[in-house]
Design a protein around this nucleic acid. Structure first.
Lengths: 204, 204
DNA sequence: ACCTGAACACCGTTCAAGT
DNA sequence: ACCTGAACACCGTTCAAGT
């Protein structure tokens, strides 16, 4: 009664990506081998080669899916009343929730970016959300003028640095602080907004 | 006439680390397999296990050596007349000169940090240099008061984010900009120093 | 004490053969 | 068209045996 399916899969490609993401989430990059992915999807170890040229191609597809999910999380945050802190928290929460995926997304797959164009497009969507947030703040007079792309790049760099350093346990002291990760993110953001150079004292 | 050496190596451990770093530099993480490292050091593929428990232990030792080299680069920069921009440039130059090493240093080896304590100590040296630089700027009245460790953490996050995003070609537009990477780093640093919120107009 | 060669389990990839 | 099973080269790791 069902539509005739080729063998037991309607969309093996999607199933392989999903299986790969699960393995990544459970055991990190080391646990993601192609034969295990195939086993998890219920096909032979050679079947994935019908859909992906090699293991790297599967990893690129997974990273691309990761960027789609990140963009979704950021889109939600951008709609809140204080978009900048919301975006920072969303970025860092995403990274800490899926550390292995985050590493894979930003981990040297893109050396020859011409070959993986769709991966870069996916990552640019997230960047676009940051640019839009800066423009909103500029319009409201809460952010200095200047090229919004460059300002967004500074902000992104700070988000990304905090996320990766937290991810790799490089700053374990943050976990013990009052306020924990959220407090750290919020304070760091204040520093970027207010600046490190002392302001004139008469400002309110 | 030479002092009797055990077989052909006086310090195989060091030779293995050096060989591993060369492979990393030449071909990235994918090119670093233990058998190739052994071949490069002129020993059998089982010999490394006399000095390293497993492949991960060698990677940890390599990452540790990377942090030592990073600390050296930062120490030189900290002595310059404008230490903060010098540190930023040193950090990013190091990352771009040895991308594969940089990835390895910050790439999830440290999940159970109790097991790799010396790696964390090595990374803390670099962080200490950043803290000291903040304290110098505070004493000179060029940086706001407040916990220097927290301020250094913000600065490190920004450095690290810029370095990793550049490394992974996430911001290719920077390469085409006038001033290139150095211009980007310098402008971004200005934003952190001056802040994103508009300052009172009468300040010089 | 330190190193070697053979051996084992496992992975990425290929390919002739099946439906 | 899409999938399978056998096969190949290669890697991490172990271990009995050599000096």
């Amino acid at each position: 009664m069902d539509k005739p399916k080729p063998y037991h899969h309607g969309d093996l490609r999607r199933a392989l990506i999903a299986a790969g993401m699960e393995l990544l989430s459970e055991g990190g990059a080391a646990a993601l081998d192609l034969r295990k992915v195939a086993r998890k999807a219920g096909v032979s170890h050679a079947a994935p080669y019908r859909h992906f040229e090699d293991k790297r191609a599967l990893l690129v597809a997974i990273a691309e899916e990761g960027f789609v999910q990140l963009a979704e999380a950021l889109t939600g945050a951008a709609a809140e009343s204080t978009p900048i802190p919301a975006l920072a928290n969303a970025y860092i929460e995403f990274a800490l929730a899926e550390p292995a995926l985050m590493r894979e997304m930003f981990s040297g797959l893109t050396i020859d970016r011409l070959a993986y164009d769709s991966l870069h497009s996916a990552s640019k969507v997230s960047f676009g959300i940051l640019i839009a947030a800066i423009q909103v703040e500029q319009a409201a007079g809460r952010c200095i003028h200047g090229n919004p792309e460059k300002l967004a790049l500074v902000m992104w760099s700070l988000f990304h640095g905090m996320a990766m350093l937290l991810l790799e346990n490089q700053i374990p002291m943050v976990q013990r602080e009052p306020g924990g990760v959220k407090g750290f993110v919020s304070e760091s953001l204040d520093r970027l907004v207010e600046g490190l150079r002392p302001r004139d004292t008469e400002s309110k």
